[in-house]
């Protein structure tokens, strides 16, 4: 019984939150990696672009709510996804046309494009703050819990409760769907293959008759979908605050590089690696050990490797270690 309690405890406080957070990071990391792989620059506007898409979802949710439209037990924000994605892609393509394309055609070094993306970051941040302001916003409605701790205890008779938030299941579920569709697209369709070919060897792709303009268009489209959905899921699960989104860029970068930048599959796994590391290393295992160890060995301290203040620092340390020892990422094999 104690053993099951210990497992439930870990599930509730580490595995489930880590899977949720990991999914959110994974979507962002694939976004980073696609832009890096196909358009060949580190996009420092990543966090703010995700924030931009989410902003539309938040505004539209408020609008829908004012019209009395809702999605039953599901959050209204899910209904806004198509519209938010549309605005996001439109914004990205506008930025590409007026900013990025010039440097791409000139074949500027990636560093210059990265610097340009810093400019885009400033502008995006300004637009977001002018439109919606910097404050914290919650836009989750519908049913908040799938399973409450109390109910779980009543059903199973265990000491430990398991709480499943609807946003956790939604995040994991939607991420699996979006990522599966994306991998199907990249691996099975002609356009997807040509995109990978372009990412692999641009000159040869041109010699094969692949139209770079189309590739760029599709890349931003996929990026827009990933960025918006990732941002919305994060916002539903926690809350929407522009500054936090800017900061999320950092673990997202870490996930993308840990997975081997330019490899979507690696970025997907990288998101979970970062999330699990952050949560497992900062979790206080005291209660866990009380359950599984005999009374005589019970720990007196929190049994916490690092304080939760260092959550971010962990992902960065992982990143630094990976950069030093395996700059191509920790996953072997296929690039895309």
């Amino acid at each position: 019984m104690d053993f099951i309690n210990a497992i439930i405890l870990l599930l509730n406080f580490t595995v489930l939150p880590a899977l949720t957070y990991g999914s959110q990071l994974a979507l962002g990391a694939i976004f980073v990696t696609l832009i890096y792989g196909v358009l060949r620059f580190a996009n420092f506007a990543t966090g703010d672009m995700m924030s931009f898409g989410t902003m539309f979802a938040v505004l539209l949710t408020y609008y829908f709510q004012s019209l009395g439209i809702n999605f039953g037990i599901l959050p209204t924000a899910l209904l806004t996804i198509p519209f938010a994605v549309f605005f996001m892609i439109f914004y990205m393509l506008t930025m590409d046309k007026f900013v990025f394309s010039y440097y791409r055609i000139k074949k500027s070094p990636p560093v210059q494009l990265a610097m340009v993306s810093v400019g885009v970051m400033f502008i995006t941040q300004a637009i977001i703050r002018i439109v919606i302001g910097p404050s914290d916003r919650r836009f989750l409605d519908g049913e908040k819990f799938i399973l409450k701790a109390k109910e779980f205890k009543e059903i199973t008779g265990l000491n430990e409760g398991l709480t499943i938030k609807s946003t956790q299941i939604l995040t994991i579920f939607i991420t699996i769907i979006v990522v599966s569709i994306m991998f199907w697209f990249l691996n099975k369709t002609k356009t997807g293959k040509s995109m990978r070919a372009y990412s692999d060897n641009e000159d040869l792709a041109l010699l094969s008759g692949i139209d770079p303009k189309k590739i760029v268009l599709i890349t931003w489209t996929i990026a827009g979908i990933l960025a918006t959905i990732g941002g919305i899921l994060y916002g539903l699960d926690k809350s929407y605050r522009p500054f936090v989104y800017f900061n999320n860029m950092l673990p997202i970068f870490a996930a993308a590089i840990v997975g081997g930048i330019g490899k979507p599959y690696g970025a997907f796994l990288g998101g979970y690696v970062i999330a699990f590391a952050e949560i497992f290393l900062t979790y206080a295992y005291k209660k866990f050990f009380i359950y599984i160890l005999p009374d005589s060995l019970e720990p007196s301290s929190l049994v916490q490797l690092l304080s939760t203040d260092y959550k971010f620092a962990i992902s960065f340390s992982i990143l630094v270690i990976v950069l030093l020892f395996r700059p191509s990422g920790i996953f072997e094999g296929k690039k895309i």
């Binding site: 620059f41 580190a42 070094p109 990636p110 560093v111 990265a114 950092l250 970068f253 870490a254 590089i257 203040d309 260092y310 971010f312 620092a313 992902s315 960065f316 340390s317 990143l319 630094v320 950069l323 030093l324 700059p327």
Partner: peptide, 25 residues
């Protein structure tokens, strides 16, 4: 010593994150 061998954009990301670690400490 540890990061200068990296490619330019990796160096940018690495230094950005390391600075974040310093400040969080």
């Amino acid at each position: 010593k540890i990061a200068l061998g990296l490619r330019a954009d990796y160096l940018a990301i690495a230094t950005l994150l390391i600075a974040e670690i310093i400040v969080s400490i």
